[in-house]
Simulated scan of single mutants.
Amino acid sequence: MNQHILRFLEGPGKGVITVPEAGQLGCSPTVLKKLFRDDTLTRVAIGTYVSTAQLHTPVRDGKQLHDYALAEHQHLLRLDALLRLHGPKVAASHQSAVLAWGLPTAKSSLERIHLVHTKRGRTARRRETHSLHTCELDDVITRHKGRLVVIPALAVIGQAMEVGLVAGVGCMDAAIVAQHTTRSELSEMVEKLRHSPGLGLARRALELTDGLAESPGETRLRLVLIELGFSFRAQHWIRIGESATYYRVDFYLYELGVVLEYDGQGKYGEDRKAADSGKPRPAGSVNQALTDEKAREDDLRLDGFGVGRVTSSTLTAEKVRKIVTTAQRQAQPSAVHRPAEPPPWARAG
C-alpha cells in the first residue's frame, strides 16, 4: 500500500495527497496516518498531506534549494495541498497568490497560507497554518498555471496590506514590469476596496510605485533615495558623447550628475543591462560580465558622470548618502541635467 502512495506522490500527485485520493488508490486513512508518523508525509491540514522529502529537500536543476527559494517552494507545495483539499470553493490570495503569479514577497511572510472563498456570503476563518478570507468583489478569481488565484491587482494590494510598505511597493513594481497589471488597474482596485481596513498602506504603496524597478533591490533603493530627498529619474537612457553607445542606468540624480546602479540578483524580467543594445547578450562567464560592467562605468565616468554602485549590504540611508557624496565629487558640470537619449530602436514612434 505504501508503494501506491509513494508512486502517486512522485507522479500525478506532484507531492500532494488527500484522503479521498488515497481511497481511490485503495488505501485507508490509517495508511496515511502511519506514513505521517514515519515522517514520510507531512500533514498540511486535516485530510491532506505532502511528501516530507519533497517539502524539505527539493531539488531544482540538480541543486538543493536554500533560503528564499526553499521557503517559496514550501509555501507553494502547502498551498497546492490546500487548494486540492478544498477544490473550487477557494482560491489563493494575498502572499500565496503573489507567489503563484511569480511575484516577490518577504521571506518572513511565507509561513502562513492565504486563501479566499470563491463565493460571497462565506465566513472568514483563521487556522493554525492558514487564513481563509472573504471577498465580495466580482470577477477577481481566475486560473493561473492550474491554480485558482485572485487576479494580480487584488493580490498585490492584499500583499501590501498584509506585509507592509516596502514589500508592497516591490510587488507592485514587479507586477507592472511583468505586465500582469497596470497602475490604472491598481488604482481601480484600491477604489473598489476603499472601505477595507488597512487600505491606507496599499494607497501609499501605490503612490510610491513606478513600475520601472527591475528587482526588489532597485525598488528599495528608490525608496531610500526618496527618503533622502534626492531628485532622480529611474531607467534613464544616456548616450556616451556623440558615439553609438547607449546605456540605460538604474537611477540618474540629475541635479548632481550622478548615476547610481544597483548590483544584485533576481531581475523581475530579462537582464536589462544585456538588453541595452537591443539584443540578448551572448552567454559568457562571470568574469566577462564583470568586464562589461567595468567598461560601462568607465564610459560613464569619461563622459562626466559620477558613478556609484549600491549592493544589498550598502542599502541603508546612511551608506547610500555616502555613496552619492563620493560619486558627486567625480561628476562634471556637463553631466548635470542631461536629457534622456535613448537609442533609435528604443524611441517611441
Rank of each mutant, 00 (worst) to 15 (best):
N2H: 13
H4W: 09
I5N: 02
R7I: 07
F8G: 02
E10K: 12
K14Y: 09
V16G: 05
I17Y: 03
A22K: 01
G23S: 12
L25C: 08
S28D: 10
V31A: 08
K33Q: 11
K33D: 04
K33H: 08
R37A: 08
T40C: 08
L41I: 03
V44E: 00
A45I: 04
T48P: 00
V50M: 01
S51D: 07
A53L: 06
H56N: 13
T57A: 11
T57S: 12
R60F: 07
D67P: 03
A71R: 15
E72G: 06
H73R: 12
H73V: 10
L76I: 15
R84Q: 12
P88D: 15
A91G: 08
A91D: 04
A92G: 09
A92K: 06
A92V: 10
A97N: 05
V98S: 01
L99K: 00
A100M: 05
A100R: 01
W101D: 02
G102E: 01
G102H: 01
G102Q: 02
K107Q: 15
E111P: 00
R112M: 13
R120D: 05
G121T: 07
T123Q: 15
A124C: 05
R125A: 08
T129D: 13
H133Q: 09
C135S: 15
C135F: 02
V140M: 09
V140Y: 05
R143H: 09
H144M: 08
R147T: 03
P152D: 07
A167C: 11
A167T: 12
G170R: 03
C171T: 14
C171Q: 04
A174S: 10
V177I: 06
V177C: 02
H180C: 05
T182N: 02
T182R: 00
E191H: 12
K192A: 06
S196I: 09
A205F: 00
D210W: 00
T219H: 04
R220W: 03
L225Q: 06
E227F: 07
L228C: 11
R233K: 14
A234I: 09
A234T: 11
Q235L: 01
H236K: 07
W237R: 05
R239A: 04
I240M: 09
E242F: 07
S243I: 12
A244G: 04
Y246Q: 01
Y246T: 04
V249F: 00
D250C: 06
E255Q: 13
L256D: 02
L260E: 04
E261Q: 14
E261G: 07
E261S: 09
E261A: 11
Q265E: 15
G269H: 09
E270Y: 08
D271K: 14
G278I: 06
P280H: 06
L290R: 13
T291D: 11
L302M: 13
V307R: 05
V310D: 08
T314A: 13
T316M: 14
T316A: 14
T325K: 11
T326Y: 11
Q328R: 14
A340P: 06
W345R: 14
A346E: 04
G349S: 10
